[in-house]
């Protein structure tokens, strides 16, 4: 494992911790899109189908369990916890799941490396992860008041994707036969979706003003 991959995973882990901190400690999910969180739960559920049958390393198994567990508990918190659900901004979080899930499923059935259930589901999870942030970005744009933790959560998620690209570049030059078009293109699209957010995030940081996305 190279430093970019490790840094990417740690950034991903940090994003989840920031979100759990907000939800568990402050008992608030204001500005957080339940739709995006449900899509992530679906992403991990479909990607880690082989978690108990395909062993890679202790590190991988533990991380997979963390991402699965945190994704589903975040969804549970927002839907079921009596305090947390009260802060959920339902009226602005209006993105429809099937606009995202259905095209990804169709694309995975059409474009994959091998037509088996596991590989198609794995490919579906890649396509879905690429666009799962969209409801969250739309919600941010509609929210006049983006609090610090929400801004940091989205920033860490974007940073994680950018570090994964560096990881692929590194692996491409250091490992033989390392070419994964499906992973790379969907990962690149996923990272590009954050470009706009990054721009305003750094602007607000540089000018020391509150983060706000233009409508």
């Amino acid at each position: 494992m190279n430093i970019f991959r490790l840094a990417g995973d740690m950034t991903h882990l940090a994003s989840v911790l920031v979100l759990l901190l907000k939800i568990h400690t402050i008992k608030s999910c204001a500005g957080i899109s339940l739709k995006t969180q449900e899509l992530y739960a679906l992403v991990f559920a479909s990607r880690y189908l082989d978690i108990f049958t395909h062993y890679v390393s202790f590190y991988n198994t533990v991380m997979k369990l963390i991402f699965l567990g945190s994704a589903f508990s975040i969804v549970w918190y927002i839907r079921r916890h009596k305090l947390v659900r009260r802060s959920y901004d339902k009226d602005h979080d209006t993105f429809r799941h099937y606009f995202i899930v259905l095209p990804c499923l169709i694309l995975a059935l059409l474009i994959h490396e091998k037509f088996t259930f596991r590989v198609v589901m794995w490919t579906f999870s890649l396509y879905l992860e690429a666009v799962a942030i969209l409801p969250q970005l739309v919600l941010l744009q509609r929210t006049r008041n983006i609090d610090n933790l929400t801004g940091q959560y989205v920033f860490l998620l974007g940073a994680y994707r950018a570090l994964y690209i560096l990881n692929w570049v590194y692996r491409y030059f250091t490992e033989p036969h390392y070419v994964h078009w499906i992973t790379w293109i969907s990962g690149l699209i996923q990272t590009l979706l954050y470009a706009d957010f990054f721009y305003y995030y750094f602007q607000s940081w540089k000018n020391n003003v509150k983060l706000e996305l233009p409508a």
């Binding site: 991959r5 995973d9 991903h12 395909h54 890679v56 390393s57 991988n60 991380m63 997979k64 991402f67 490396e113 091998k114 088996t116 590989v119 794995w122 994964y164 990881n167 036969h177 994964h180 992973t183």
Partner: peptide
């Protein structure tokens, strides 16, 4: 055989 997917990544 395993497809050439990035199975060692998360």
């Amino acid at each position: 055989a395993e497809p050439s997917v990035v199975k060692d990544e998360l």
